[in-house]
Amino acid sequence: MNLRCIIIDDEPNAVNLLEMFIRQTTEWQLLAKCYDALEALAFLKEQTVDFIFLDINMPQLTGMELAGLLPKTTHIVFTTAYSEYAADSYGYTTLDYLLKPITLKRFYAAVQKIETHFHLKDRGVTVPPSAPATEEYFFIKSGKTFHKLLLHNILYFEGEKEYVRLVTSSEQLLVYRRLKDIEEQLSHPFIRVHHSYIVNIAQLDKIQDNHIFIGDKQIPVSEKFREPFMAAIRQRIF
């Protein structure tokens, strides 16, 4: 996908790493490398981009301060060594939140997420904002216990009235929350496919006759969610 982006970061090594990842894994146009917020503001007044990579801890203007000066529609991928700014990033059109040091694996996951977003947008599909994942795990309360779960181990979420059943390959947890609330905290590779199901695309085994198969579990894909789901799948078809 031919997207236009810029990097805004005062650390040359961080800029060089992102540039290398972009050239290795995408067909994006890297239009500029800006080493402070003022340079970025001047560039963005003259040029249009699809999204920006934005460091947070910078001199003169921080990344958060710069984000507040940009149009609300500006798509941002935050890059930072500090996880505590994640909550503040929700107030912007945030595509992802990358914690330094950024690995190639994590960057590639961000590429899939970014390209899926713009692919759906180009097709006229409304793309709901999602909170960026700042870590590869989270804690979930089931009963009186907080369980630590690795995101990639989750197979799917199943809504059951006021509860949600979270299923991994080794356990199932029942959580007193609405499926919609959980959906709002998730991002790629998780996607809603049915009124009662959110699945981890990375864990599905096959798709057949409007059904997803994850191990022995057969999950229906409803008409309402079929197009966004298939758009995400088409990103990975050879």
Rank of each mutant, 00 (worst) to 15 (best):
A202G: 06
G124N: 10
G215I: 10
T80W: 06
L99N: 04
L3H: 09
E11N: 10
V175I: 15
A131S: 03
A231D: 11
N153A: 06
F146Y: 11
Q172Y: 15
Q218M: 13
D205E: 00
N200P: 04
T62V: 06
L166F: 09
L18Y: 04
I76G: 01
L150V: 07
L70G: 01
I212A: 02
I8Y: 01
E115K: 07
F43L: 02
Q208H: 13
N16A: 10
A109H: 08
F146I: 06
C34K: 10
K105P: 04
S83C: 10
K180V: 11
G63V: 00
A231Q: 14
E84F: 15
L41F: 08
I219S: 06
L44P: 06
E227G: 10
Y92I: 04
L38W: 12
Y176C: 14
L30P: 02
Y92E: 08
Q235T: 12
Y176Q: 14
S169F: 15
Q235V: 07
L70R: 07
L120C: 05
F21Q: 02
N16H: 08
K141M: 02
Q172N: 15
F78V: 00
R106H: 07
K33W: 15
R106T: 06
A81Q: 09
K161R: 13
F21Y: 09
A110C: 09
T48A: 11
F225T: 06
Q203R: 13
L98T: 00
Q208P: 06
